[in-house]
């Protein structure tokens, strides 16, 4: 197995990337893709790593966790399946942006994402921002979603607005291209 997926999660502090990348380098591994984010105080990252030396993943995981545990972090590795490696950018989807705005209450994300899942829409990016306006917390959720071509965008909008209405959410569904067209040269 030449590629594996590594996730690292824990409290944010300086030196996490340095530590992880140094250990991977010692195993002769090459980091091909990486994404990281910080939510409040918590660090999370995901790496796709090429392992040309064929080192045993359990061994790499052990080494990483020995160092990271002392920093309050943990690492998880799993081999990357071949179909994931070969997965082409799908021509059967179109990128849409679904935005909701409304009161922040438990259950909204579940309701909205379940409606998307029922229509086989895949969320590729998701951000939620909470603002405090007029004495109540308002949550804005922005989902970038791959929508199967078989799903008509009007039915998608209708379904999302029905679900949103039940939670007091104002829902917009727009093709992603409009945002890029307006804001990018």
């Amino acid at each position: 197995m030449e590629k594996f997926v590594l996730s690292v999660i824990g409290q944010d502090k300086p030196g996490i990337l340095s530590c992880v990348s140094t250990i991977l380098f010692q195993y002769g591994c090459n980091i091909q893709d990486v994404s990281q984010t910080i939510l409040q105080t918590e660090f999370a990252s995901i790496f796709i790593v090429h392992n040309p030396g064929g080192h045993v993943l359990e061994e790499i995981a052990r080494t990483l966790n020995q160092t990271l545990e002392s920093m309050g972090l943990s690492a998880h590795l799993r081999p990357m399946a071949s179909h994931e490696i070969d997965s082409p950018a799908s021509a059967n989807h179109e990128p849409f942006v679904i935005t909701t705005q409304g009161p922040d209450q438990p259950g909204t994300i579940s309701a909205v994402t379940t409606a998307m899942a029922c229509l086989h829409c895949n969320v590729v990016h998701f951000r939620a921002i909470t603002t405090h306006e007029e004495d109540q917390d308002t949550m804005i959720m922005i989902f970038e979603v791959d929508v199967p071509r078989a799903v008509d965008h009007r039915s998608l909008r209708k379904r999302m607005q029905e679900v949103g209405a039940g939670w007091g959410l104002d829902v917009s569904v727009q093709h992603r291209e409009i945002f890029e067209t307006i804001h990018r040269i």
Binding site: V97, T99, Q101, H125, R127, I129, I140, I142, E144, S172, Q174, R176, I178, F179, E180, I182, H183
Partner: peptide, 16 residues
Amino acid sequence: MLNDREVLSTLSMIKN
């Protein structure tokens, strides 16, 4: 990936 500002300012232009 779109940034929040791009999405929110577009929505505001249309809705408000």
